[in-house]
Computed example of a mutant assay.
Amino acid sequence: MFYRPEDGHGLPENPFNAIVTPRPIAWISTRGPDGSQNLAPYSFFNAVAYTPPQVMFATTGRKHDRDGTKDTLANIRNTGVFAVNVVEYAMREAMNLTSGTWDRDVDEAELAGIDRAECETIDCPRAAGAPATLECRLTQIVELPGPANQVAFGEVTGIHQRDDCLRNGRFDVTLYQPLTRLGYRDFARITEMFEMKRPGE
């Protein structure tokens, strides 16, 4: 089957959502200038550079009570900082609960029973029990074609790693089973890994 996205696919659900998979999930926590706090998952997310370490995430919608975007990006625009919390399989239900389109005054972390702690390098809350958290300072926001499509880039200024996720001096994802987004309503967890050396190593 071949189709042009502009012409439609004729299927019950959009296959593009399931083709680029698995995608890591950024569970992003922010604080608004008024002190309100927000926690929401984004699966258009990845690391984009090593030195300095940098990440990106895209938001693709808007809320009725925000100016052309969602709570997360609105807070980041105002404060210039955000925290990316890694989602483990054990947190799947809490993460899913925070994905709802809640009003801007709803504290999703409180709603989902997630304990918070303060970040070290930025003025922002983080999910205290997450396997890892990346503290980020906004570097730029890029507007993409289409309504409300925007990408935020951030430089990582601090990294938290949960002690039980370290083995033999390495951050070991099999110790906590990262949750990944597949497509539609499908998710997966990573339970095993293997190592491959590049040619010449």
Results as ranks from 00 to 15, higher is better:
His64Thr: 15
Gln177Phe: 13
Met56His: 03
Val106Gly: 12
Phe16Leu: 14
Asn149Ala: 04
Pro24Val: 11
Val173Ser: 14
Ala109Tyr: 12
His64Tyr: 04
Asp163Tyr: 05
Val84His: 00
Arg167Trp: 06
Ile190Asp: 09
Ile28Cys: 04
Lys197Asp: 12
Asp65Ala: 07
Ile122Arg: 03
Arg198Glu: 11
Leu111Gln: 07
Arg77Met: 02
Ala74Gln: 03
Ser29Lys: 08
Lys197Ser: 14
Arg162Met: 11
Val55Arg: 00
Ala117Leu: 02
Ala18Phe: 07
Asn78Ser: 14
Met196Pro: 08
Thr51Asn: 13
Asp107Cys: 13
Arg137Ala: 04
Arg62Phe: 05
Arg23Tyr: 02
Asn75Lys: 01
Glu93Ser: 09
Val84Ile: 10
Asp71Lys: 01
Arg62Thr: 08
Ile25Met: 07
Glu135Asp: 03
Arg77Val: 00
Arg167Ser: 10
Val86His: 02
Leu97His: 07
Val20Ser: 06
Leu182Gln: 07
Asp186Leu: 14
His64Leu: 11
Gly8Phe: 01
Thr60Arg: 05
Ile114Gln: 12
Gly68Ile: 00
Arg66Cys: 04
Glu155Val: 03
Ser29Trp: 02
Pro178Arg: 11
Phe2Asn: 12
Arg185Lys: 15
Asp123Ala: 10
Ala94Tyr: 00
Glu135Val: 00
Glu110Gln: 15
Cys119Trp: 05
Asn96Ser: 08
Ser43Asn: 12
Leu11Tyr: 10
Gly61Arg: 05
Met1Ile: 13
Glu155Thr: 08
Tyr50His: 14
Pro147His: 13
Glu93Pro: 08
Glu201Met: 14
Thr157Tyr: 05
Val55Ile: 12
Tyr176Thr: 03
Arg31Ser: 12
Thr139Cys: 09
His64Trp: 04
Pro22Arg: 08
Phe187Asn: 01
Thr139Tyr: 06
Ile25Val: 11
Gly158Lys: 02
Gln161Val: 15
Trp102Leu: 10
Leu11Ser: 08
Phe187Leu: 12
Asn96Arg: 09
Cys165Thr: 11
Val48Asp: 03
Ser99Asp: 09
Glu118Arg: 10
Val156Gln: 09
Asp186His: 15
Thr59Met: 02
Pro199Gly: 09
Gly129Asp: 15
Trp102Arg: 09
Asp123Trp: 02
Tyr50Asp: 15
Pro147Ala: 06
Ile114Phe: 11
Gly183Asn: 08
Phe194Thr: 13
Glu135Cys: 02
Gly158Phe: 06
Tyr184Gln: 14
Leu175Gly: 09
Thr180Cys: 12
Glu110Cys: 11
Thr157Val: 13
Ala188Val: 06
